[in-house]
Design a protein around this nucleic acid. Structure first.
Lengths: 235, 235
DNA sequence: AGCTCATAAATTGTATACGATATCGAGATT
DNA sequence: AATCTCGATATCGTATACAATTTATGAGCT
C-alpha cells in the first residue's frame, strides 16, 4: 500500500472539527449566542463539554487561529471583538475574493449543487419566518461558504470560511437594522445566475451584495454584556 | 485602566510566534532544509528544542493550521506535500490577492517602507550571489509579505503570509530551473513602481510576476528523501 | 519463500499535577 | 475617602503520567 486516500479527508477537517470545544464555541458565535468580548474561562469550558483542559486549550488555540477568539498570555481567552477597521478589512477582503468564487461556482456548479443551494436558501427563509434569528444568520453565512466550496478552490474556501466566521462577530457589533431582507433576495438572484451558468453576472451580483452589507454597517457603540456561559453554549 | 493597547500586539503574534517548535520548523521549511513529506515525530522535536510534548503538539497544530504540516490522527505529523492541484490553487489565489496588496502598497508606502524593501532586495541579491539558496528563498518570500504589510490590510497580510509559506513547499516540489533570476529583476521593478506611487503599474507588475512563477512550475515526480531531522533543524 | 496472526515496542491522545502569573480583597497609609 | 501594599485565591502555562492506537517483529502455517 502506497498511500491511503482516506487520510487526505481525515487530515483536513478532523483536526479542529473533532474538538467539541472548537465546534461548540464556533457555532455559538455564528448563531450570536456568544457576544463579542465574552470571557471564555478554561475551567468553565471543561465542565460544559466534559473534557480536560488539554482539549479546551487546543480548541481555544484553533479558534484563535481563525480569529474568533482572542488569547492574551496569562490572562485567558475571550470572544474576539473586531474593531471598525477590522470590519472594513474583512469586507474589503470578501469583496475581493468572493466575486471570484461566485464566478467559478457559476462555471462549475452541477445540478446537485444548485439543488443544495436552493435548499439552503429555503431553510434560511424558513428560519427567518420562524424568527430563529441565530439559525438564519448561520445559514446565511453557510450560503457563502457553500458557493466557495462549489468553486472548487479549497484555498479560497479556507479564506472565505474565516471571513464569513468573522463577519458573524462584525454583524453582532455593527449591524443595527432589521437584517436579511436583502439577503434572501440577493441570494435567490445569485443562485439564478449560477444555475444559468452566467459567471459575469454571478460575480457582479456577489460584489454588490457584499458592498450592500458593508455600507450598511454602523460603527458606533460596542457595549459589553455579561451573561452566563452555560446558557449561551448548551442550548 | 480600560484597555492596555499592548495586549493587541501581544495577542496577535505571540500565540504561535513564541513557540520555538513553530518558529523553528516554519523557518526550516521556508529555507528548504525540511523537504515536503518529512516525518516530524513528537519525541524527536522534544529533544531538539528541549521542550515537552505539550509545546511540540501546540506548535504542530499551529503549523497544521497554516497548512505547512499534515497531521494524521494517531499517526503523527509530517511536512505537507502540496499536490499539483494545491499548487495551482495557491498561485491562483496569489494572483488574485497580491496584485491588490501591491496596488495598496503603492498608494500608502512611506519613504521608510521603500528603504526597507530596497534593503531586503539587496540582501536577497547578496544571498543569491553567496549561493545561500535557502536564505535567498526566504528573503524572496519576505518581500511579498512585506508588501502586504505595507498595504495596511492585516487580513490580506494573513492570507499572503500563508500563501507565501506554502509556496516554499510548492517550489521545493515543482520548481526545477535555476530560479530567482527573474525575481530580483521583478522585485526591483516592483519597488520602483511602488516608490513612484503608481498603483496600476505595481498591480500589473505583481500579477505578471506571479504568473511567471506559476507557469514555470513543472508538475512531475515528487520523490521522497529521508535524512536526519536534527541536521535539518539545528543549523 | 511468502503469508497470517499474535505479541511487544513505539507513538500518539488525554488527563492530571505542579509551578508561575494575575486577580481580588482586607487592612494600613496619606 | 481614596490609594497602596500584601496576602489569599483563582487562573493560566508547562511537564509528566497513563491509556489508546499504531507499527514492528517473529513464530507458525500453507
Amino acid at each position: 500500500m502506497k498511500h491511503d486516500p482516506r487520510f487526505d479527508e481525515a487530515r483536513d477537517r478532523h483536526d479542529s472539527r473533532s474538538n467539541p470545544v472548537f465546534v461548540g464555541v464556533e457555532r455559538a458565535i455564528h448563531e450570536h449566542r456568544l457576544p463579542p468580548g465574552t470571557r471564555l474561562a478554561e475551567a468553565e469550558l471543561c465542565e460544559i463539554y466534559g473534557v480536560s483542559r488539554t482539549i479546551v486549550r487546543a480548541g481555544l488555540q484553533a479558534l484563535t487561529h481563525s480569529q474568533l477568539v482572542t488569547l492574551v498570555p496569562n490572562r485567558g481567552a475571550s470572544v474576539a471583538k473586531p474593531t471598525p477597521s477590522d470590519a472594513q478589512e474583512v469586507f474589503e477582503a470578501r469583496e475581493l475574493i468572493e466575486p471570484r468564487t461566485a464566478r467559478e461556482a457559476a462555471r462549475r456548479a452541477t445540478p446537485a449543487d444548485i439543488e443544495l443551494l436552493r435548499r439552503h436558501s429555503a431553510e434560511e427563509h424558513k428560519a427567518l419566518e420562524a424568527r430563529d434569528y441565530g439559525r438564519s444568520l448561520r445559514l446565511s453565512g453557510l450560503f457563502h461558504t457553500e458557493i466557495a466550496r462549489i468553486s472548487g478552490q479549497k484555498t479560497l474556501l479556507g479564506f472565505v470560511d474565516q471571513l464569513v466566521s468573522r463577519s458573524a462577530l462584525i454583524i453582532a457589533l455593527y449591524w443595527h437594522r432589521e437584517r436579511a431582507r436583502c439577503d434572501s433576495q440577493c441570494h435567490e438572484r445569485l443562485i439564478d445566475a449560477i444555475a444559468a451558468a452566467k459567471p459575469d453576472e454571478a460575480e457582479t451580483l456577489m460584489r454588490s451584495h457584499l458592498v450592500d452589507i458593508h455600507t450598511a454597517l454602523d460603527f458606533r457603540d460596542a457595549g459589553d454584556s455579561s451573561r452566563d456561559l452555560r446558557d449561551m453554549l448548551l442550548p
